[in-house]
């Protein structure tokens, strides 16, 4: 049983996407990205619908958010995405140690993101804005919360990437790219959430 308990074993999918032909990573992870994009799009449309029914309440509540913290969050995630993209490139060129370093740093930034979200939530709760305070804050806690759950999933994916980078016999470039693609998805979901919750009027 020993050998078979390796996570995401390399023999799984024939390496489909290193050249210009197939999709990057595994085609399978793109199904997930597409489906998640669909689900989140439905959340965004519902948010905008409720927003347009009560624009004053949403505007007033949006003003209670800390835009600067939101920008900081975005930049943190953008840097981590950049590091992961560099890591994938390094792994592709066989510089696995360098790739591992990049992914570690990206995970560190992910932790920073989660920490700053916890801080932001606790500040909001102290200021008296809770999940059931009003419709805007329901959406705020829901969207940021479900996104943080995705960040936690992202840690699992990056953990698998790190594990695979760790030893030559475990490596599989498609799996490494699949983990990276999940992390980038977490990033782009935040980009849209940031615009909808913090910036739009």
């Amino acid at each position: 049983m020993g050998a078979s308990s390796l996570p995401l074993s390399p023999h799984r999918s024939p390496s489909r996407g290193e050249g210009c032909h197939g999709l990057p990573g595994q085609a399978d992870i793109w199904y997930l990205v597409g489906f998640e994009a669909l689900v989140f799009s439905s959340y965004f449309v519902v948010y905008l619908l409720y927003r347009s029914w009560n624009p004053d309440l949403f505007l007033q509540s949006q003003q209670q958010l800390n835009q600067n913290l939101g920008v900081l969050n975005t930049v943190i995630l953008l840097i981590s995405s950049w590091l992961v993209a560099r890591g994938v490139q390094a792994a592709r060129e066989g510089r696995h140690e360098a790739a591992g370093k990049q992914v570690w740093m990206a995970m560190g930034l992910g932790l920073l993101f989660v920490g700053s979200k916890l801080l932001e939530w606790s500040l909001k709760i102290q200021a008296g804005f809770e999940f059931s305070t009003n419709r805007f804050f329901s959406f705020y806690y829901f969207l940021t919360g479900i996104h943080v759950v995705h960040v936690l999933f992202g840690f699992v994916f990056l953990g698998v990437v790190l594990y695979q980078l760790g030893g030559p016999r475990r490596r599989s470039q498609p799996v490494i790219e699949a983990g990276a693609i999940f992390w980038h998805m977490v990033d782009f979901l935040w980009v849209m959430i940031f615009a909808l919750l913090y910036l739009m009027r």
Partner: peptide
Amino acid sequence: LRMIVWEFMELRHAP
């Protein structure tokens, strides 16, 4: 979002 998907996720290499 498109830049992230095209460049970081490398969808620009897709069919």
